[in-house]
Write a protein that binds this DNA or RNA. Structure first.
Length: 642
RNA sequence: GGGCCCGUAGCUCAGGUGGAUAGAGCAUCAGCCUUCUAAGCUGAGGGUCGCUGGUUCGAGUCCAGCCGGGCCUACCA
């Protein structure tokens, strides 16, 4: 609602300035520093001052005097040395919100693809993967909240080096057969993804002391690519089991996908062969004849030596396959996957996975008009290569619609490593933080962290609600844990490295997820208490006239609270434009703060004056809806009680 | 060597398109539970926005150069 008034004001000023001065200006609408300056500030006079060569104050006075009436605006004033401040019509805004007027959602139109999570299926997920999935999932929710059609993809590199290394561990280091691995999978006392976590670290460190063992890796990779034999079968067994574990881990956090494109199908359906032909035809890559890259197919321009796309032994690098995948996402490859359903989510939505064999009908995937790849900042070079590939093929529009949704890594503080019992070198101990490393087995596992959070939340819930059943306590604790974790990962902007700290991550106070949840629970409690007392929620539209709204909103306090609550659309819109989920998190926190303030200051159920009581109840309900909606976009559930 | 990111209160971080007196949480200190849940609320202290120049009516924000720190620059992904 607030957002559409902003747009009204901006376009009214723009039209007026064009007519009056003959200048077309994109008019900014800001928030005044002090609330008694009004609700909006237009600094246009400063911009005009330069071109008109007049004092800003004088221009501002002209603007304010001549702008004329604007819908929803009560007063236009000149302030400072050239600001035009806007005061809104309080009754009008209140009445509009009461009628439930909301922003018109953007028309669905074209489809946007968001790829996120994308964890190598060879070990348990860790905290770094959680940042990726939470950012990606929240961005998807933000886009959908604005009416955008979104397809969520989670790419599975099930034939890569990392999977091969775990197979090497099983086969060469542990002398396990396929049957042994199956038995391990069937053993309910063993967490398979955790087992592989350790095994992968062991294999990696074995390579360091036994360079000759790298032969095992390449033999395994060849076996996987050939798609036959015990090692290939073992690789699929491992990857499938780990993917299942990752999906379960992510589902705990409320993260869901539409489709899992797998590398095995990219190989099987020869996606790369098609992309290779295209790249050669357009001379986007060339065969190097000399120097260190002799015998390789190389993409020039991005670094001094160029980027190797096809190795001298004829095998394609990951980036090469990624180019083929990116082409497919835009519907440019001329090939498609086959699909089969993998699982069904609670709401009935089906998660599809690619397959190499023709199957019955499936939805159409890919063919996006814009593609967001949620990948950490360390891979920006590779993302540049992918985009350069599109460009080299002449797909300029698609190259421009390819967005690397990048974010900085999650690292561990040396103190955190000490807590986890991870030994560090002297060099690492002196650093501000240490990179999480799957190869070194260095990291906080996602499920462990969630379990720790749940245990802590359960203590709190049990002490506050001893009467509730154990099952119920556990459910509430689970929701609180998710709220705490998601908010923790979202409160940092994408460019900030998160130096992980247990104490901060495990906090339920201050700027945290549970703080939001608590505010929403309180709002619900008031409305529930009302009914427990035998009263009913009033028919707000019938009982509150526009005049009544205006009367109640004469209170500066109520007015500011209502403004805060009505800015959700504005905040979401801004966050989508900025591509920054942290901005939604920040708004949600401010919203909760405003409500807690309101809650503390005004008795609602016990209010004697009928009009005021109905107004307060309406405010409570409005806050509740906005809190729930914003929390929903952050993927934070609201417990029944706290 | 080249590219990207970070540097703001004791700590962790926010500070759209330059704008009015630089903010929040944590921590510290002082208050508030016979009342709709104290996972909360109120108040206090705490700042050379890394440094130096520049652009202009105006710079935490833009530009240049330094100083710290991190990441990338593989025939790994």
């Amino acid at each position: 609602m607030f957002h559409s008034i902003e747009q009204h004001v901006s376009s009214a000023f723009r039209a007026h300035i064009l007519a009056r001065y003959g200048l077309d200006l994109a008019v900014a609408v800001e928030q005044p520093r002090q609330s008694d300056f009004g609700e909006m500030a237009v600094p246009a006079a400063f911009q005009l001052a330069k071109q008109l060569r007049q004092a800003p104050r004088k221009i501002a006075a002209e603007l304010a005097a001549e702008i004329g009436p604007i819908e929803g605006v009560a007063a236009v004033e000149v302030a400072g040395n050239g600001y035009v401040n806007i005061r809104l019509d309080r009754g009008a805004l209140g009445a509009a919100l009461l009628r439930g007027e909301s922003e018109e959602a953007a028309p669905a139109g074209e489809k946007v693809i968001v790829e996120h999570t994308n964890i190598n299926p060879n070990k348990a997920a860790h905290i770094g993967h959680l940042r990726n999935a939470t950012l990606g999932d929240t961005f998807v929710r933000m886009l959908r909240a604005r009416g955008q059609r979104v397809e969520v993809q989670n790419y599975i590199d099930n034939t890569g080096v990392q999977v091969a290394d775990v197979v090497v561990g099983f086969h060469y280091l542990e002398n396990k057969t396929l049957e042994d691995v199956k038995a391990l999978l069937a053993d309910s006392s063993v967490r398979f993804d955790y087992y592989c976590w350790d095994l992968y670290a062991r294999t990696s460190s074995y390579y360091k002391d036994h360079a000759e063992a790298l032969e095992w890796r390449s033999a395994t990779l060849h076996a996987i690519e050939a798609g036959a034999g015990e090692l290939a079968e073992m690789a699929h067994l491992v990857a499938d089991a780990i993917v299942e574990a990752h999906l379960a881990t992510m589902l705990r956090l409320g993260v869901e996908y539409d489709v899992l494109p797998r590398e095995s199908e990219i190989l099987r359906l020869r996606f790369w062969a098609s992309a290779f032909e295209l790249l050669k035809e357009h001379r986007a890559i060339y065969r190097e004849t000399e120097g260190k890259n002799a015998g390789c197919w190389v993409m020039p321009g991005l670094s001094e030596e160029g980027k190797v796309i096809v190795r001298s032994d004829g095998t394609v690098t990951y980036v090469g396959k990624d180019i083929a995948y990116q082409l497919w996402k835009f519907g440019l490859l001329g090939k498609d996957f086959y699909y089969r359903p993998l699982q069904t989510y609670a709401d009935g939505r089906v998660l599809w996975v690619t397959t190499g064999e023709p199957t019955e009908t499936a939805p159409q995937f890919g063919h996006g008009s814009r593609v967001y790849n949620v990948i950490d900042a360390r891979q920006s070079y590779l993302q540049d290569v992918v985009v350069a590939g599109l460009r080299g093929l002449g797909y300029t529009a698609q190259a421009n619609q390819s967005v690397h949704f990048s974010y900085e890594m999650v690292a561990l503080t040396p103190g955190c490593c000490a807590e986890l019992g991870i030994p560090l070198s002297e060099e690492d101990r002196a650093r501000p933080y240490v990179e999480v490393s799957g190869r070194k087995g260095l990291g906080v596992k996602a499920d462990d962290l969630m379990d720790t959070l749940i245990a802590k939340a359960l203590e709190e819930v049990a002490s506050r609600h001893a009467e509730a059943s154990a099952e119920e306590q556990k459910r509430v604790a689970g929701q609180i844990a998710i709220g705490a974790l998601r908010y923790f990962l979202l409160k940092f902007t994408r460019t900030s490295v998160i130096a992980f700290d247990f104490q901060e991550a495990l906090s339920f106070e201050g700027e945290t997820g549970p703080y939001l949840q608590y505010a929403a629970v309180r709002a619900r409690n008031i409305l529930r208490k009302l009914e427990e007392r035998g009263e009913r929620l009033p028919d707000f539209a019938a009982e509150l006239s526009r005049q009544a709204m205006a009367r109640q909103l004469q209170s500066e306090d109520f007015w500011h609270l209502l403004l805060a609550a009505s800015k959700a659309d504005s905040a979401i819109e801004e966050a989508v434009t900025a591509g920054e989920p942290a901005h939604v998190a920040k708004y949600a926190f401010q919203l909760a703060q405003a409500f807690n303030n309101f809650y503390h200051q005004y008795p609602i159920i016990h209010e004697e004056n009928r009009e005021k009581k109905v107004f307060l109840l309406w405010m409570t309900d409005f806050f509740r809806r906005q809190l729930e909606r914003t929390a929903g976009i952050l993927g934070i559930p609201i417990p029944e009680y706290m």
